[in-house]
Amino acid sequence: MKKFENQKEIIDYLEISKATFYRRTSALGIKPSKRSFSDIEIDKLRNFGKNDNDSLSKLSDMRKEIKELKKLLSVKNQQIDQAHKLVDQAQKLQLLSESRTQEAEQQLIEIESKNKSWFRKLFSK
C-alpha cells in the first residue's frame, strides 16, 4: 500500500497527465480523490491500455461485429427501399382503378340517359 500526500504526487509518481489520471481512475472505478493505492492499483493505473492483448482481441471482435451490422443495415435499407416502391405501385394502381371505375360509372349513366325515351326523361325526375 503506497500513500501519497496529494494528487500531484500521485500523477508525478505514475508519470502521466492529470487528464489521463482522471480517465484511467474513472475507467477502473477508482476514486480520483483517493490518496492510498495498493500495488495492483498502481500497476493498473500505470499500465492501463498498454499491450493489452485482451483489449486488442475485443477491439477486433467489435470491428468484425460492426462490419456484420453494417452489412445487415445495408440489406435492411434495400428491403425498405423495395417496400417503398411496392407501396408506391399499389397507390398508383389504386388511383388508376378508382379513375377507371368513375369513368365506367359516368359512361353507364350516359348510356342509360340516352336509352330513356323522351317521355321517361320528362317524368323520371
Rank of each mutant, 00 (worst) to 15 (best):
L45Y: 08
Y22F: 04
S36Y: 08
L59T: 09
D43V: 03
E68D: 12
L108R: 15
W118Y: 15
F4E: 00
S57M: 13
I30N: 05
E5P: 00
E105S: 11
L95E: 15
L95A: 15
K70Q: 15
D61G: 06
K18Y: 00
E110D: 15
D39H: 05
L122T: 10
K116W: 08
D43Q: 14
I80A: 01
K121H: 10
K8I: 01
I66E: 09
L93K: 11
L93N: 09
K121L: 14
N51Q: 06
S99P: 05
L28V: 03
I16M: 02
S38K: 04
K121D: 09
I10L: 07
F48W: 10
L69K: 14
K3W: 00
S97V: 11
S97K: 15
E65R: 10
N53D: 08
S113I: 08
K34G: 04
S113P: 00
K125L: 06
F48V: 03
K125R: 10
K125T: 05
N115R: 14
S17N: 01
L14P: 01
A104K: 12
N77A: 11
L96G: 13
L28F: 03
I10R: 01
K8P: 01
S60Q: 12
R63D: 07
A27E: 06
T101D: 13
F21Q: 01
R35H: 07
E98Q: 15
D81R: 05
D12R: 04
L95V: 14
K116P: 03
D52Y: 01
I111C: 09
I109S: 14
K114D: 12
K114L: 14
S99W: 10
K116G: 03
K3A: 00
N51H: 06
K64F: 02
S36V: 07
L45C: 12
K121R: 15
R46W: 03
E68K: 13
L45K: 11
S33Q: 13
D12P: 00
I111G: 05
T25K: 00
S26D: 04
K92F: 01
G29Y: 06
E5I: 00
